[in-house]
Structures are given as C-alpha cells and as structure tokens.
Simulated assay, not measured.
Amino acid sequence: MLFDSEPEPDIVIAKLPLERYDNRHPYPEDIELLIEVSDTTLKYDLDTKQKIYALAKIKEYWVIHL
C-alpha cells in the first residue's frame, strides 16, 4: 500500500496476470514502472510524488516533462 496516499500516475506497468487487479489496485511489489506525464505539475511530480513512491519502494518512477 502507499500509506495514506493513493497518487494516480498516468501510466502503470504492473506484473501479469491482469486478473489479479480485478478487485484491487496493484500493490507496490506488483508495479514495475510508474510514469507521470508532466507539464504544470512538474514540481509536484518531482518532489511530493517522487517521495511518496520512494517510501512505498516503487522500483522505477519516470517523469516525462512536456
């Protein structure tokens, strides 16, 4: 779980099979890659969200700045 926060990334690459997420969101250990596509939220994505994902032990986090 992501503690008390549940950020909503633009793209999530999670482990298969997809059916494991029929009744729940992926847990951090299920996530291979999170991607944020950022423009006006760049500072938030690089600061706040990055810290949240790091604390949750997300393996890989990318920010694509438009």
Rank of each mutant, 00 (worst) to 15 (best):
L42I: 11
H25M: 14
L66S: 13
A56R: 00
Y61M: 07
D30C: 02
D45G: 00
V63P: 04
E32P: 04
Y53M: 05
P9M: 05
L34P: 01
L16P: 10
R20T: 02
I52R: 08
E36H: 06
V12P: 05
K51W: 11
Y44V: 09
K15V: 07
T40A: 09
D47W: 08
D45W: 03
T48I: 14
T48G: 10
L16C: 12
E6D: 15
I58E: 02
N23P: 05
D22F: 11
E6A: 12
W62S: 08
Q50V: 12
S5E: 15
T48Y: 15
K51A: 12
P7E: 05
T48W: 14
T48R: 13
E19K: 07
N23Y: 07
Y27S: 05
L42E: 12
E29G: 02
L66P: 14
D47C: 11
R24M: 00
K15P: 04
L55Y: 15
I35E: 01
E60T: 13
E32I: 14
I58G: 03
P26W: 03
N23K: 07
E8F: 13
A14T: 04
I52D: 04
I64D: 08
E32A: 09
P28D: 01
I52G: 02
Y21H: 01
M1H: 08
K15Q: 10
W62T: 09
Q50M: 14
L55H: 13
Q50F: 15
E32M: 10
K59G: 07
V12Q: 06
Y61Q: 05
E19N: 11
L55Q: 15
P17A: 00
H25P: 09
Y61K: 06
T40G: 06
P28I: 00
D45C: 03
D47Y: 10
L46R: 08
L46H: 07
L33Q: 01
K49P: 01
Y61T: 05
P26E: 01
P9A: 06
A56Y: 02
A54L: 14
P28E: 00
S5P: 08
I58M: 05
N23T: 09
A56S: 05
S5T: 14
E29A: 04
L2D: 09
M1D: 11
Q50W: 13
T41C: 10
R24T: 04
Y21C: 02
R20A: 03
D45T: 03
E32W: 07
H25I: 10
I13F: 11
L33S: 02
L55V: 12
I52V: 10
P17S: 02
E36Y: 07
I31W: 02
L2G: 08
E19S: 14
W62Y: 13
I52C: 04
I13D: 06
E6T: 09
L34S: 00
V12L: 07
R24V: 01
E29M: 03
E8K: 13
L18Y: 11
D47K: 12
K49E: 00
L66V: 15
E8V: 15
E29W: 04
L16F: 12
T40E: 09
Y27K: 06
T40S: 14
L42D: 05
L33D: 00
I11F: 06
P9V: 06
K43G: 11
K57W: 10
I31M: 03
K59I: 08
R24K: 04
N23S: 09
E8N: 13
T40N: 09
P7S: 05
Y27T: 04
P17C: 02
T40F: 08
S38P: 03
T41Q: 12
